[in-house]
Design a protein around this nucleic acid. Structure first.
Lengths: 339, 339
DNA sequence: ACGTAGAATGGACACGTTTGCGGAACGTCT
DNA sequence: AGACGTTCCGCAAACGTGTCCATTCTACGT
């Protein structure tokens, strides 16, 4: 059964289809009673405009594409939630595509977005494939990145203020009295890792603490990597009394390593994470960490994108502040053993 | 700058646009060299077909709509990941829409899907608003539900085999030697709760254990509710030695309540969850739970939907088995206090 | 050389919408 | 009464593609 079109309504109302079109868009060219009459008929017939036909002539699809490495990543999911929310408020719909960081899927994503003529794109994947960058930008639409590790050739992005947040987090450990503070980083050379590391260094400097290279260990951003990296730190002759971790996932692994070593958090060692993933709250002990306003970041990215679509100016790199969330994985350092 | 169309290519190749259309679709009506020549030109000009124009005439959009309450729910996100994956393999794109369980947004979702003429819909939200059910079904497209609590008027759905999984999980506790096994359920009357409860009852019956009403307590499916419900159980004169929880979220709350009561898991009390959320693995202790093959369920839902779109038959209610994952929150009951 | 079957291609319309332009109806002013 | 300005509406073209039908071209058999 065909969908009812503007012409069917025109026939029913005894007017031309142009008039119907205008009536449905509340054109001031029509007299109010005509508008009301036509809208009533449209309502009765259960009319729904065809986005395809409309966008064919308006050259706007009211649609944005969102690429993610995988929506199964809770971090990404919340960002997308914010994007979708903001888009919806502006009557935009979102196409979701997972790239899985696979070149083939990345091609599919580009093709799909191009064919559907999305008005703009938000990329929420830490890594964008090299070959895929030029393809994305070749399709003449605005693009906004969220927390991207290689913003390189793109202009617009929304990012967490890594440096400041990291300095603040490390600062907390300093204030608690720690003097041997380790940095458990990420080994992939991401921009966020170097920024967080820089914040860590800065906090040490401010406190007049010397930087000790042995106190830096690298994981892989996941619990397994954090676990191994923490074991190395624990094996030092003089282990740290506090560890600032690149992210919560690493911190989870670190917690496990510490537990297995028979030590207690925060009594023996303090741990600070980064992200405030849901699990941070339910770790044992609940993790002190830096909250990233993920949903908000998604909203902002969408709003910047929508501005760009309207042809307006928008922030090029927007830094949003993190928030230090105090839980129970941080405490003053243990008293030196009495001797 | 306009996108290059089929006509531009026709002009460049000195043929009619119909020929180009055929060439791009590898029609056997054209001779191979013409096809090759035209495809080459299309390639050079960076041609991308317009999905809008195409779907206007084919009456197919190669698009499916996915409604979720919120993509920020990790459970949902993984299901969606599976849906998107399967859809992509069949060259379908997905529209993602969050309903947030708000009537207004639900209306928006329906409008948006209707206007975009999606070929089918997957609903991954535990609750579908009453008013919104008829709207969805009014738009003449196939619909598949995933783990929906009120499948009511819809025909097709994919669900976890609650009863069997729950019986098995409770059975584990029985085998470990527990005799006072509690059920920490959900209070909203969801179908999954009653099915899981039924499985629990069945396992008790099989083991010849009497059902004790006091050993049933209700949370709200979230940690807070689980926490409160567990406190009630702990306050009993003769508390349970094991608890089977409606889901992992409730179990997390239960773990917290137990910790606060100064008891240890699993030494004093065993806990089993349901879902195998990511956090289950990193809870303290790591949680024994029932894994739901979320991604797989998403894939299946998409595949059923795609079959329906092709006009084929498909399973009406597909039950997928859960998998009991043994971790460290379960052990034999404590020895009775020596006296 | 000519008719013809079959292969290859073009013409035209349709899909559903928006919009510039022109025209009819109506009222107002001189 | 005629000129003119408004108000309201219809006509037609356009967006990019698919496809039926008609037409041209090619090659073949006689």
């Amino acid at each position: 059964m065909r969908n009812v079109s503007i012409k069917d309504i025109a026939a029913a109302a005894g007017v031309s289809h142009s008039t119907v079109s205008r009536a449905l868009r509340n054109s001031p060219l029509l007299k109010p009673e005509t508008i009301a009459r036509i809208q009533k008929i449209a309502q009765e017939k259960g009319y729904t405009a065809s986005a395809a036909a409309r966008s064919l002539v308006t050259r706007r699809t009211q649609t944005i594409g969102v690429v993610v490495t995988t929506i199964a990543d809770p971090f990404v999911a919340e960002v997308v939630s914010g994007i979708e929310e903001a888009a919806n408020e502006h009557r935009y719909s979102v196409f979701l595509a997972n790239s899985n960081a696979e070149p083939e899927r990345e091609m599919n994503v580009v093709r799909s977005f191009a064919e559907h003529r999305v008005d703009g794109i938000v990329v929420t994947s830490s890594r964008v494939g090299a070959l895929y960058t030029p393809m994305l930008s070749s399709m003449q639409v605005p693009i906004v990145l969220v927390n991207n590790q290689h913003p390189g050739e793109f202009v617009h992005s929304v990012m967490i203020a890594n440096f400041e947040a990291s300095r603040q987090a490390t600062g907390l450990l300093v204030e608690l009295g720690h003097r041997r503070i380790a940095y458990l980083g990420d080994r992939f050379g991401y921009q966020s890792d170097s920024e967080r590391f820089a914040g860590y260094r800065e906090a040490l400097d401010c406190a007049g603490l010397a930087f000790v290279p042995e106190l830096v260990s690298h994981g892989d951003g996941r619990p397994e990597g954090g676990y191994e990296a923490m074991k190395k730190l624990l094996a030092l002759p003089d282990p740290p009394t506090a560890v600032f971790c690149y992210n919560d996932m690493s911190a989870l692994g670190a917690l496990k390593a510490i537990r297995e070593a028979g030590l207690r958090v925060p009594r023996d060692i303090s741990i600070v994470g980064f992200d405030d993933l849901f699990v941070a709250e339910y770790a044992e002990p609940p993790l002190t960490t830096v909250r990233q306003p993920r949903r908000q970041m998604g909203r902002l990215a969408a709003e910047i994108l929508l501005k760009l679509i309207q042809g307006e100016q928008a922030d090029e790199v927007l830094r949003v502040p993190g928030e230090l969330v105090l839980r129970q994985s941080t405490a003053p350092p243990p008293c030196p053993e009495p001797r």
